[in-house]
Structures are given as structure tokens and as C-alpha cells.
Design a protein around this nucleic acid. Sequence first.
DNA 1: CTCAGATAGTTGTCACGTCAACTACTGCCT
DNA 2: AGGCAGTAGTTGACGTGACAACTATCTGAG
Lengths: 176, 176
Amino acid sequence: MKEGPGSTMNQDRFQAWMNLLQAHAVITTRIENELETSCGLSLAEHQVLVRLAGSVERRFRMYDLADVLLLSKSGTTRLVDRLEKRGLVTRLLCEGDRRVVFAALSSAGERAVEEAHSILASAIERSFSRHLSDEDIATLRGSLRRLLEGNEAWADHRCSPSYPARAAPSRRAGSS
Amino acid sequence: MKEGPGSTMNQDRFQAWMNLLQAHAVITTRIENELETSCGLSLAEHQVLVRLAGSVERRFRMYDLADVLLLSKSGTTRLVDRLEKRGLVTRLLCEGDRRVVFAALSSAGERAVEEAHSILASAIERSFSRHLSDEDIATLRGSLRRLLEGNEAWADHRCSPSYPARAAPSRRAGSS
DNA sequence: CTCAGATAGTTGTCACGTCAACTACTGCCT
DNA sequence: AGGCAGTAGTTGACGTGACAACTATCTGAG
């Protein structure tokens, strides 16, 4: 009656949602601070580098980058701007389709992501993994994945009807 | 080797953390959109109203509000500014300690939080609860609470040594 | 009493991300 | 070919929150 939604939904479910918000806020703040002070990278910037490093061609179309980062197109533009200004990422034109711009990992970017690796790993360990058993992790991951799939399925910003047609995120070289 | 931290930590743990980030992003975006379009309230604004409504005295010191919202002092000031401008919250002076300002729920604020209640509940249901079993919820909540406690324990912005001394969030009337 | 240090809140300035409008390019349709 | 709808990316204006500096007040040591 005074704590929040209680009549139309289970109190536990509301609390679980609140806990998700709080845990996310606390954990990301801590991990981001550690990453920022050690490597000078924000979580978002690091995510870009990791995604690029994880891609076969070491590059991503801006569009696909926005998609995997769950970020707006303009947010992605500005994020890549910052990384490019710092020399960690390079923009490459696509010769097959001149509307397309690739964000590619520079060698400095590769070094940065490698350097961040162990720092981030230990930050995650301290703020996250450390507090959970293997079983907790497995269950948590299962629940989170189900949430993700349930919500990605419909109603998200991106995923226009043409999405399946875009095929692989990277194809056709940009500079070679 | 190319997906992210893999040598110093279990891959599953890194993935679980990634899933936490993604699930949070997707779910809060969806829920916030629904709340915003139906009630004109952001999630943060709603949180303020819920906290105030949940308080015994229907009021909170700015300081304590910042604390429970996991927000900076200035962020809280501006959040309350917006709500006050819209008439949902009133600032009250504390006569016992004139440094202190209370944020108090106005009657319009009470109506707003009641109105938002069912809308938010169904949004949470659709984007969150719906995808999880009772057992999932219980386990998830347990894990999240453990994460929260593990991280709140030390190293957070607030919680200066004087924290326990501040006692109850509200005491001494503000206007009566 | 008085002054130094701590505490509560607000304000200036900035970083980051959003939406909407814009440019540039592609590709279909006639 | 010409034109137009659709797509990729960038830019302008803005909202929100953070940090640091500031004001005002309280408290305790002398």
C-alpha cells in the first residue's frame, strides 16, 4: 500500500525489478570508475573496442555498432568520434556502398583493449562475480537472457524489416 | 581470445555481466517509454514520488533522497526542481536545522504516483515479470541483493563515517 | 563567545546521449 | 535516363546527471 505496486502485481516482482535497477547502478558505477581511472576508458568506449576486437574483420558498420551497443545512431557517431580523436579507432569508407562507414580498430585500439582486459576482469570479479556462486551465475545468466530475448523480440527501436537482409556486419574491404 | 576477458576469469561470468548490462538497457528503455508516454514521468521522477510516498512522513531530506536514489546531490537538486516546477513535490524548510530541506509529496504528487502505479505495474509485468517464473524471480532477487550488499558495503560515494548518526531520514516537522 | 571545520544544499560548467532534421547515396519503378 | 522512396551517417538543439566550487548553517574546541 505504501511501498509501491502491490495490488496488481506480486510485491516480490516489483522488488526484484528495483533490485535490478539498484544492482546495475552500483555495479556499473564501481566498475566504470575502476576502468576509467586505470585506462581512461568509459564502459561505453570499452564496449566499442571489445566489439570491434571481437569482429572477424576487426571493423563494424556504424549502423551495426549502434545495434549491438543498444545506442542511438547519433550516440554511436559521437562515441566513435571520441575514440577516433584519441586514435583508438579509425573510420573507413566502404567502396561498395558509399553511404556506409566502418569503425575499425587501430593498433593503438588493440593495445588499449588488451590493456583494459585484465583491469576490467578484476573489476568485474570484485564487484560482480565474487559475490555469486557458479550456480548463481548460471541461473542469473539464464534469467537475463530470457528477459533479453523476450524484450528484443518486438518493439525495439532498431530492427526494421530490412534487418535480416543486412546479413553480415562486415563485408567488402574499406581501404585495401 | 577475441570475445573479451577469458584468461583471468570465467567466460560465463563475463557473459553474465554483459547480459546484466544489456537486459537492464532494454528493460529500462521499454518501461521508461511506457511510463513516459502514459504519465509523463521519467523513471527517476517516478522513483522520487514512490520514495516520498513510501516514507512515514511523506517527506525526505534532500540528502537522504540522494542516498536512496543512488544519485549525486546536484542531480537530486535538479530532479526535485523539475518535480517542484510541475507541482508534484514541495520543498519544506526544517526548523530544527536550517541547512536541511525536505522534499515533500504534494497532493498532486500523490495522485500522480497512484495513477502511475497500475501503468508501471503492467509495464513491469510485460517487460520483466512475464518472462520469469516465481523461482527465477526469487533466485534473481537473491543474487541481486547479494551483489548490492557486497558492493554497498564499502567504497561508495556517500556513506561518510557520520552516516549512522543521521538516524531516521525524517524527523522534526518542516512547516507545522 | 568565537572561530575552524564539518555538513546540507544549490549553482556553474561540462560530458554524454537523445530526437529530429539534414546530407549523401542507393536502387527500384516507370 | 529521371525521379523518388528508403537507408547510412552526421549535425543541431536539448535534457539529464556528475564534479567541483560556492553559500549557509551547525557544532565543538579554545
